Deep mutational scan, measured.
Amino acid sequence: QVALSRTQVCGILREELFQGDAFHQSDTHIFIIMGASGDLAKKKIYPTIWWLFRDGLLPENTFIVGYARSRLTVADIRKQSEPFFKATPEEKLKLEDFFARNSYVAGQYDDAASYQRLNSHMNALHLGSQANRLFYLALPPTVYEAVTKNIHESCMSQIGWNRIIVEKPFGRDLQSSDRLSNHISSLFREDQIYRIDHYLGKEMVQNLMVLRFANRIFGPIWNRDNIACVILTFKEPFGTEGRGGYFDEFGIIRDVMQNHLLQMLCLVAMEKPASTNSDDVRDEKVKVLKCISEVQANNVVLGQYVGNPDGEGEATKGYLDDPTVPRGSTTATFAAVVLYVENERWDGVPFILRCGKALNERKAEVRLQFHDVAGDIFHQQCKRNELVIRVQPNEAVYTKMMTKKPGMFFNPEESELDLTYGNRYKNVKLPDAYERLILDVFCGSQMHFVRSDELREAWRIFTPLLHQIELEKPKPIPYIYGSRGPTEADELMKRVGFQYEGTYKWVNPHKL
């Protein structure tokens, strides 16, 4: 086992960053958080920038500027975001240094004079007029057009580079997404736009490419001749908990499936790229999406959770019991969808996408189930092999396979070949997804960000279904809070070829 401390991990990262040409360590950078008073800024962006600063992973002359409508001070920003920093008493001095680099400007999102004030403020910072500028839009999409237009007109660096990070949702359907994309691309070049999907920053999602293309053993079996089906799962054990009003506007397909799960599907299904260059990788992902037809209604199961009468606390409440959810809402909190990649490698292999709230566990994984062994000599005792990439929690890679049961006879039983990170790298604290992705933006690497043509294809696949749901308002199937979801989803999976045995229990190697 390799035991690495946080300091050692960050030392390795620093070495990698400083050796590259793309990370300008000594240049002045300004990180501007648009929507600095909001939840995302408070819980994710400010803490992430602090962790990067604490670990010495930001360029040395980096300033952080918050911008929002609320009249706040840096002290206010500190008060609301610091509880999420997880700072230790030993880091007190470092924390003071961090907040000394912070400033805040209040202004409207659609007022040109406010942006001119913001620009004057940035120019007044040390070497601010020639600094590289990175704008993070932690804002609702309704203000994107006004904000990007004003940034472009008043706040661009004339000497350094300018980059803009856009948070999902990128529209509600193909038409609104196209409108937003066309607007942003009329102001910024594609190499300046970073559409963030934080799932692409997760260690195991990034590991998929290495697993596939750096190991000879997987190449020959990664196709329709050997793989019976692919299941991509995202499960949350909690409901909307008072935030249903926002969720109800989008629903589970827009929230998770059309982005996170579809991105994971691309990494499983794509061909080997010409290189690890950002556009070479994204070219292959677009090719996969172009091979997927629009979702067919007979390959869809929609569910909505109801309270568990035997549960406790939140578990007793259904989705419609959330006071922020519109009365009688038919918005799905669970969806199972089957897609097919219609190309030579994957023809006929079902890709089953499942996601839901208020389920029995927290889990995100990719599961490849292989065909049955031909010419069975073990009297149907063999179960199908599976390769599982567990994204969260407890990152893991393992192969479910058959071995001989101890004893006199040739009785096979299920076991696993474990390729888990935790076994080799004991207690290594890896940077989280937002840390990686923000560092990628500083480096100018777009590999783990969504390109406009990729986004367009993703919406093309799901828009007809979303429009049909909005028009017909089908009643989702009720499922109990804390269950596996509607049984109809299991029946759909069985119908397209997935075999669920229920006889195997994964042993978490992190707890051995």
Rank of each mutant, 00 (worst) to 15 (best):
Y398K: 15
F351H: 00
V281C: 12
E416R: 09
L368F: 08
A433G: 15
E457G: 02
L465W: 09
N411T: 09
A332S: 08
N299W: 05
K426Q: 15
P350C: 01
A269Q: 02
V428S: 15
E435G: 12
V507T: 11
H510F: 11
E413I: 06
V450S: 15
M402S: 06
N385M: 07
V496D: 07
K511E: 11
P464S: 07
V300M: 07
R484M: 10
D255M: 13
S445W: 13
P476C: 06
L320E: 08
T333G: 02
K405R: 13
G502Y: 13
M447G: 09
N298I: 08
P406L: 15
F370P: 00
P309T: 10
P406Q: 15
D372W: 04
R362F: 11
M257F: 11
G313F: 11
C382H: 09
R390G: 15
S483G: 10
L465H: 04
W346N: 02
T330S: 11
Y305C: 02
R345Q: 15
Y504I: 13
Q263K: 14
Q304I: 01
D453N: 07
G356T: 01
E414F: 13
D283V: 10
Q258M: 15
E414K: 11
R460P: 00
F334M: 06
G375W: 07
R451T: 04
T399M: 10
M408F: 06
K475Q: 08
P323I: 09
R460L: 01
D321Q: 10
E454T: 11
V507H: 14
K429N: 13
G313E: 04
H260F: 15
T331C: 11
Q468I: 06
P509E: 15
I480T: 11
V300D: 01
R456A: 12
L302V: 11
L261N: 02
L302H: 03
V301H: 01
S445V: 10
N259R: 12
G407E: 06
E491V: 12
A297K: 11
I389H: 03
I389T: 04
L419K: 03
L289D: 01
K383Q: 14
L471G: 06
Q446K: 11
L417W: 14
T330L: 09
R424I: 08
P478Y: 07
A458I: 12
C443M: 06
L339H: 03
W459V: 13
W346G: 01
E271T: 03
P509L: 10
H379P: 12
P486G: 01
K317L: 06
K383G: 15
I352N: 01
Q446L: 07
V349E: 03
L417K: 13
L320C: 13
Y504S: 15
G502R: 12
N423T: 10
A433M: 15
V341S: 00
K475W: 10
T316F: 08
P273K: 00
A336I: 03
K363F: 09
R282Q: 04
L261R: 01
T276S: 06
L387K: 01
N277V: 08
N394C: 12
G502Q: 14
E395G: 14
W506L: 12
V388D: 00
R495K: 06
T316A: 10
E271Y: 02
H510V: 14
L387Y: 04
E454A: 12
A269P: 01
K405S: 13
R484Q: 13
Y481Q: 10
A332T: 05
P486F: 02
L387M: 04
N343L: 01
Y340F: 08
N360V: 03
A315H: 12
V306Y: 07
F370T: 04
R424F: 12
K357S: 05
A315D: 09
K272R: 10
G303I: 01
G482W: 07
K473W: 07
D280F: 06
M270S: 04
G348K: 05
D372E: 12
K473R: 10
P326Y: 10
L261A: 07
Y319A: 00
F378K: 02
V325A: 06
E344C: 13
P474M: 10
V295C: 11
G502V: 14
C266R: 00
C291I: 04
T331R: 10
D376S: 15
P406V: 15
K475T: 08
S445D: 15
C266K: 02
V288C: 13
E488N: 09
D347Q: 15
E488P: 07
T324I: 12
I377H: 04
G303C: 03
N427M: 15
Y340K: 09
Q381W: 11
V450G: 08
M493F: 07
T276D: 10
K505S: 13
D490A: 13
Y481K: 11
T330E: 11
G318F: 01
Q499N: 11
L430V: 04
K363M: 12
G482Q: 05
Y500A: 14
G502M: 11
